[in-house]
Design a protein around this nucleic acid. Structure first.
Lengths: 193, 193
DNA sequence: GTGGTTCTTGACCGATCGTTCTGGAACGTT
DNA sequence: AACGTTCCAGAACGATCGGTCAAGAACCAC
């Protein structure tokens, strides 16, 4: 019925994510997006609406894909699974391909669209905390983890560690420091003396 | 010899800090600064140079004043001193007066002036880590803290906790979560089972 | 091929950005 | 009182911002 699009929407969103993630919302101009995606301004606006709408779409896409507990292998014994998880946090935050840190956290701490992103982050944090606490209780009941401390508080420690790692990684802090710190948080969860 | 200034430089910098901290560099326009400080544009430029120079001056001022270990009371027994320290981290980051979080961390994770702020942050982090590790060793030798784990790694855990708290506080995360998490990190340092 | 619809292109809009300039007011010195 | 200097107020600068418009090109259905 009409002329088909000459671009792949997913690819455009991916490029836009790269820009927004590395430079932030304000510092990314529409011209930058035009240059990076190859689309013209009118095509961008026609396909995604204004800059805010595009950003929201990009953020939704990121949130949908990112899973804080994705690296938690439930087939492994708890200590190894958790070890792999926190390692994945550090490596993911320090990954040289793509910008460092967490795009959602960056958005929620910057000014633009803050309240919206903050709500998403709050929900994500609450969800991660709840799932982690449930996991700890479950594995504790299975005898894989020591008793004693409140699983909820331990989950909270891990979540704060995760975000500290993401934030500091974006700030350029050395990976070795983040690795050591997260290992130490994990040691507490595992009850290592 | 000439007409004296009608404004207090410290007060102007303080107001500028408030704006930059709450909105970030990009989202703070010169007009905003003019409105908030009461100065005219020409006076601002005459006194501080351009926007970048003003921002740098504001950042330097903040860094100079902020002391991550300022709340560490060395006259107290180590457990109480550390407890007060991490509590001060949380309360400081969540303080309703003024913007939440850490201005230096915000700057280092945003795009603008990133490399410069990142270097300052890296130096601050390294310094805090070193001093904390030394403190832990010292108090460990005095019998106030348990042996076993590497003081350097424990210091790193605390530093990452501190920044996780600051970052999440800025993102609007509930204070109770941050408090619980930092308490847990502290428990690890204190060797609480 | 023709009509209808959508896409693409590039020029263009007003608004706002950071910055500078000009004119005049306010002060210390002589 | 008169000078020289510095400060203040506001207009104005070019550049860039996000966003739109008009015209032509590309496609599908018929």
């Amino acid at each position: 019925m009409a002329r088909p699009r000459e671009f792949d929407e997913d690819e455009v969103l991916e490029r836009a994510l790269g820009l927004f993630w590395s430079r932030g919302y304000d510092a990314t101009s529409v011209q930058d997006l035009v240059d990076a995606t190859g689309l013209s301004r009118a095509s961008l606006y026609g396909a995604f609406g204004d800059k805010d709408a595009l950003f929201r779409k990009v953020l939704d896409r990121y949130v949908e894909r990112a899973s804080p507990l994705g690296a938690l292998d439930r087939s492994l014994p708890a200590p190894e699974a958790l070890r792999a998880l926190v390692r994945a946090w550090v490596d993911g935050a320090c990954d040289a391909r793509g910008p460092r840190g967490c795009f959602l956290l960056l958005t929620a701490t910057s000014s633009n669209d803050a309240t919206s992103a903050q709500q998403i982050l709050a929900a994500s944090v609450a969800d991660t905390e709840r799932k982690l606490a449930a996991y700890l209780r479950e594995r504790r009941a299975a005898g894989e983890l020591p008793e004693g401390r409140d699983p909820k508080d331990l989950a909270r420690l891990l979540v704060v560690t995760q975000h500290g790692v993401a934030s500091m990684a974006r700030a350029g802090v050395d990976r070795a420091l983040l690795r050591a710190a997260s290992k130490e948080a994990l040691a507490h969860v595992l009850g290592d003396a």
